[in-house]
């Protein structure tokens, strides 16, 4: 896989949290519409790689180029704006605001972008229908099951029609049936909007939803396409 035509390219990333080295020369690239699994044992730096790629955490060194722009040259506000409008996120848990209803949670990214409440909630509802959770609109996250909540989270990640969807162990807290359902819906929705998906997981069966995988070990990434 060549970086040419890639939407998001990272090269030689280094990142340490105090004495703990999380990334030690990691590389990454992804095309529009591609689903790439990031695998590796726990503590290998998978999540850190995702955080760097998404502009949440600045790497200590190395370059990340999104859509032709070097992320390091962007201000924090610009990166936040990027995350709001071009990226979507699904995490393992703790991401839905417990006080807001499901539809308000899904509409939140749109509202952060300045869309009116009515408009945002209408769009949110179409995505909830797509993820088959529209009947939960008035419920609060505490009142729905884990699988339903995660689907609400996926709807929220997709509601802005992001160009890259970052998913960090999106099925980590779910049983295999619910996990599969979430993965089905997530990848279908991403493919239909030509969004790239960065899928961090340690589960092979979740990774199997990807087009290709890279393995992170001790902060170094290895593109498995090139191995074969």
């Amino acid at each position: 896989m060549t970086p040419a035509g890639s939407l998001l390219i990272a090269d030689d990333l280094h990142k340490a949290y105090g004495p703990t080295v999380a990334l030690d020369g990691a590389e990454f690239s992804i095309h529009p519409g591609e689903v790439v699994a990031v695998m590796g044992p726990s503590g290998s730096g998978k999540s850190t790689l995702l955080h760097c790629l998404a502009g949440i955490v600045p790497p200590d060194s190395g370059s990340i180029v999104y859509n032709g722009r070097e992320m390091a040259t962007m201000s924090d506000a610009e990166r936040s704006a990027l995350r709001r409008s071009e990226f979507g996120f699904v995490f393992q848990f703790g991401q839905l605001v417990p006080e807001l209803t499901c539809v308000e949670n899904v509409a939140l990214p749109l509202r952060l972008n300045g869309t009116s409440r009515k408009e945002a909630e209408r769009t949110a509802l179409t995505w909830m229908e797509r993820l088959e959770v529209d009947d939960l609109r008035g419920k609060r996250p505490g009142e729905v099951s884990g699988g339903q909540g995660q689907r609400v989270a996926v709807a929220r990640a997709l509601v802005t029609s992001p160009r890259v969807l970052f998913a960090d162990e999106p099925t980590g807290a779910l049983d295999s049936l619910n996990g599969e359902r979430v993965m089905d819906l997530l990848t279908d929705a991403a493919r239909s909007t030509n969004a790239a998906v960065v899928l961090v997981t340690h589960e092979a069966r979740v990774a199997a939803y990807s087009d290709r995988e890279i393995v992170v070990r001790d902060g170094k990434s290895r593109d498995m396409e090139r191995v074969v």
Binding site: A204, R205, A207, A208, M224, V227, V228
Partner: peptide, 22 residues
């Protein structure tokens, strides 16, 4: 390398099966 090659091969198979399953 042997393990990684095998790993990639396994995952390739899993991808095919996942696709078929869907």
């Amino acid at each position: 390398d042997i393990l990684d090659t095998q790993r990639a091969e396994h995952l390739r198979m899993m991808r095919i099966l996942t696709d078929r399953k869907r």
